[in-house]
Simulated scan of single mutants.
Amino acid sequence: MPQARVASAPPSASQAHLGMLLWAVLVGLSFPAVRLVSEALPPLSLTALRFVIASLALWGLARRAPDWWPSGRSLLLYALMGLCLAGFFSAMFWAAHHATALSMATLFVSVPLLAYCLGLGARVERLAWRLPSILALGAAGALGLAWAESRGNTAGLRFGVGEAVFFLGCVSSALYPVLSKWGLAHRWLSPSAAARTFWSLAIGAVLIGSLGLMFEPVGRLARMTARDALLLVYLGLFSSAMTFWLLQRATAVLTPGAVTAYNYLVPFVSMLLLFIRQPGQIGWAWLPGCVLVLTAIALLLRRDRPHT
């Protein structure tokens, strides 16, 4: 008689935090890989292909969950989560041509605080002073790193139509873990992180791919080289499948604000890569932001440490 399949137990808070540390490293490493992809290729279509690769990689693991096939209401929630992914990536690619890099980096700092506020509205966060204080500290550190990267030049800091669109994308990004947490709390979503990741990425791939077909010259995909294809597979496996699985895994035990707080570590990882490639870029201007970001993450780890 075959053994019944059971859903894997959720991770402990410590395991979730360790997973999100790995998430920050993988996301930070993805930026150099993205820059190596040919600029002539359509970005929305490439993102859709990344999500397809990620979904295929998670297919076998997702199917092992006993309730991996969603019900009607679950499918609706997965569609909303996929819409969040489509909204963020679409806004990011559009804003890249209409907003400054410094403005976008500054606005992205708002995602954890947005996730906390949206989580309060969805009743998956608690009204308390500690987590918002930690998030504000991390935001100050991330802003410090953005300031150091711009060498204190705030001429590129502005708020126009491009920045407004990107801010809406940041709201979409913040809403993704809130919907995941809400769906888990109300038992609308599978307890399997692989199943939740698979369905949100698969639906996100369809939505982003549809936008690419409508607004991009998809025929440019024929210019993809073998190196581009290898980079796309790498990004699909590690920068999409693994990172979103780690995020969904952590969402089972952490709140949306705590999960998205690890966004503050991404510029820190990027800074370390910059120093490895260009040691001459090291300077005291980076120190305040580094200290604040690392302090915020340390406080976050201490906050969720089990008490004995």
Rank of each mutant, 00 (worst) to 15 (best):
S45F: 08
M271Q: 09
P267E: 05
L179P: 00
P10H: 05
V293S: 03
A229W: 12
V25Q: 01
A298R: 13
A40P: 07
S210C: 10
A258K: 12
L235E: 05
S180N: 09
Y234R: 10
S240N: 03
P43N: 08
G60P: 06
G212Y: 00
A24W: 02
E216Q: 13
M104A: 10
T100P: 02
A16P: 03
L131H: 07
A222F: 09
T197K: 04
W68T: 03
L246E: 02
S240C: 12
A250F: 01
G204N: 00
S240A: 10
T106Y: 00
F215P: 01
R187P: 01
T251Q: 10
Y262I: 11
W188D: 02
L61T: 14
L102F: 07
E149L: 13
M224F: 10
A57N: 03
F89N: 14
G82M: 08
L175C: 08
S74H: 09
W245M: 04
R277V: 04
L76A: 15
G72Y: 11
A285R: 05
P66M: 11
V206D: 11
L77M: 02
L299K: 11
V124T: 06
T197I: 01
E149D: 15
V165S: 06
P42W: 07
G236T: 02
E216Y: 08
Y262K: 04
C117T: 13
G72P: 06
L75C: 08
M20T: 12
V27Q: 12
R223E: 15
P43K: 05
M92D: 03
T255K: 08
F159E: 10
C170P: 06
F159Y: 15
G289N: 00
I282L: 13
L80A: 13
P32S: 02
M214D: 04
Y78F: 15
H98C: 03
H97Y: 06
L46D: 02
M104H: 03
L300G: 09
T47I: 08
W68L: 07
A194F: 01
D228Y: 12
R303E: 10
A96N: 13
V291N: 00
L231D: 06
R50H: 04
T260L: 15
R158L: 14
S200D: 00
A48E: 03
P217D: 15
I297H: 11
V171M: 09
A174Q: 03
S55W: 01
G280L: 12
L299Q: 13
R220L: 07
L145R: 01
A205L: 05
P112E: 10
R305Y: 12
S38H: 12
L272T: 13
L114I: 10
A174C: 08
A16M: 00
W188M: 02
A155W: 15
A250G: 14
S30C: 08
Q248T: 04
R305V: 04
C170M: 04
F88I: 02
L272D: 05
V34S: 09
L189F: 00
D304R: 13
F275N: 07
L22A: 15
W286L: 11
